[in-house]
Amino acid sequence: MASRRRMLLKVIILGDSGVGKTSLMNQYVNRKFSNQYKATIGADFLTKEVQFEDRLFTLQIWDTAGQERFQSLGVAFYRGADCCVLVYDVNVMKSFDNLNNWREEFLIQASPSDPENFPFVVLGNKTDVDGGNSRVVSEKKAKAWCASKGNIPYFETSAKEGFNVEAAFECIAKNALKNEPQEEDYLPDTIDVGGGQQQRSSGCEC
């Protein structure tokens, strides 16, 4: 079959502002980190090619702005996503509490055909801060939430240290591969002249 072909995966990254979405992406794609915070405006787009189990993937990463005023970008943004990455800051309880909102919002906007099994990945970021002393969300708590939402894979990451970032994104590719739709035969109709309902288009259909 056509399984050898390259696959393009649309990956949406969501989470409160300041949890490190852009830094994670920057670490993953460019292996770079900056302490300076600059808010994403609307969305950033990055491309990363990865090889996984002998297959070549292109990750089209949609890094969105966390601020509420950008949420109007809405529906079309999420359309046709292959995977959604939810990010929170392990040092900020609110960012964890909001995961539920982000997840629900995504499912409403993207309206995937099978919402129960849509591939999410949850990342608990900034595990490096203060040597872990300022941490307020325990791994156990995060994992429990993930389990309750249909066993979402969970990773603790540090964009700064580059910890677990690669593994998290590999999981995204793995997930997408699992969800790859069956190839269907493409069989459009043939014009039926004899049937009398032959369409005769006289002009442009636009």
């Binding site: 649309k10 491309t47 089209q60 079309a76």
Partner: peptide
């Protein structure tokens, strides 16, 4: 095309922003 995935996303974002 695959290398232009990010650019393609930008175009879609512009279109959908206006559509919105």
């Amino acid at each position: 095309e695959h290398k232009l995935a990010g650019f393609s996303a930008t175009l879609q974002a512009i279109i959908s922003f206006v559509e919105n």
